[in-house]
């Protein structure tokens, strides 16, 4: 019921963070995730970060996957492509 997309936090200024998703920058409100740090991945809904994405937990899903399925190639996290440019520091 709630459209929300993953993004990476680039800058933080009090309750406002600049985030990036698919190469698009946007200022959002981070009052709901007070512990967020620069470089974290967050889930954004209607201009607010509603949760910090837990990369380690994401790996547990990967284990679940490996446990049940034959494909050894591993879990392809679909969210990766949102992040790839986020990791690229020269995008100002």
């Amino acid at each position: 019921m709630c459209l929300a997309i993953p993004a990476v936090v680039k800058k933080i200024n009090r309750n406002i963070a600049e985030i990036e998703s698919l190469g698009v920058l946007k200022k959002i409100d981070i009052s709901l995730v007070p512990d967020v740090r620069k470089g974290d991945y967050v889930i954004v809904h209607a201009g607010f970060a509603i949760q910090v994405i837990d990369k380690e937990e994401a790996l547990i899903t990967e284990d679940y996957w490996k446990q049940y399925f034959t494909d050894e190639a591993g879990f392809e996290d679909n969210e990766e492509e949102y992040f790839e440019a986020g990791d690229n520091e020269d995008v100002q």
């Binding site: 997309i5 998703s21 698919l22 190469g23 698009v24 946007k26 440019a85």
Partner: peptide
């Protein structure tokens, strides 16, 4: 383009 898709995803 990636950014065009990005804005589309933000806004649904």
């Amino acid at each position: 383009q990636r950014q065009t898709r990005g804005i589309c995803e933000f806004l649904g």
